[in-house]
């Protein structure tokens, strides 16, 4: 059981993709989660549903629409072409966009739950202490939502590492560009290289177990020290 150069490339590409997607998603999800946790608008329901859709849709459906939207004939593709850029499908950048959509609920929901759980009381206290909304967000809401951010980062990263269907639809199978671990395993199996498929699959199993075990133990500690003591 050893890893080939192509296996290593796939691992690196996967880690690069998952890290970038996680960082971008944390940034994008924060305002969405904040709005969803605090709004009373009727739009809350529909927006929640849109964010959660990747949870229930087959990845192929998401990939199919992205392919059309981002492709040379699609609206986004046309726009990028008019700027002199190449369309996104079958590129690393395309994979980043697709993965962000695919992993969105896994990042938004833990952050949203953390913001909702703290309620309005800490923010009201901050307001009576002359903290502007931005000040209160940075120095009260963000620190209090830290466990939520931790869950969001872990889940977003792990989920991006584990995606397959969307990658195949929009990324194809280009070495060092879109061939991530899950696709590499698929290739090995297609070529009847079960030994190499085993190695990579086992790696993924260990990764998944480790990261989830870590997450749950950290969450448990937070539950006993901070949230129950909130007064």
């Amino acid at each position: 059981m050893s890893l080939s150069a192509e296996d290593m490339d796939a691992i690196w590409l996967t880690l690069k993709l998952a890290s970038l997607v996680t960082v971008l998603l944390i940034i994008v999800s924060t305002p969405i989660a904040w709005w969803l946790a605090r709004t009373r608008s009727w739009l809350k329901g529909p927006v929640n549903a849109i964010v959660a859709m990747p949870l229930v849709l087959p990845p192929t459906v998401l990939g199919f629409y992205l392919l059309i939207f981002l492709g040379p004939q699609g609206a986004m593709g046309q726009f990028l072409l008019s700027l002199g850029l190449s369309p996104l499908p079958f590129s690393f950048e395309g994979l980043v966009v697709a993965s962000m959509l695919y992993s969105l609920p896994f990042v938004v929901q833990p952050i949203q739950n953390a913001f909702a759980a703290m309620g309005s009381r800490p923010l009201e206290a901050a307001a009576t202490l002359r903290a502007s909304p931005w000040d209160a967000f940075l120095h009260v809401a963000l620190p209090l939502a830290k466990p939520g951010y931790l869950s969001a980062a872990v889940l977003g990263f792990a989920h991006t590492v584990g995606e397959f269907g969307v990658v195949l639809m929009i990324g194809g199978n280009i070495p060092n560009e879109t061939r991530v671990i899950s696709v590499q395993i698929y290739d090995h199996v297609e070529a009847l290289e079960y030994g190499q498929a085993h190695t990579l699959s086992l790696l993924m199993m260990v990764f998944a177990f480790t990261i989830l075990a870590l997450l749950y133990s950290v969450q448990k500690r937070h539950n006993t020290t901070t949230s129950s003591s909130w007064l």
């Binding site: 009381r121 800490p122 206290a125 209090l144 830290k146 909130w230």
Partner: peptide
């Protein structure tokens, strides 16, 4: 320019 004391102390838990 007010100070406010809430029913429950409402200290920042972090």
């Amino acid at each position: 320019p007010i100070g406010y004391v809430f029913q429950e102390a409402n200290l920042f838990p972090h």
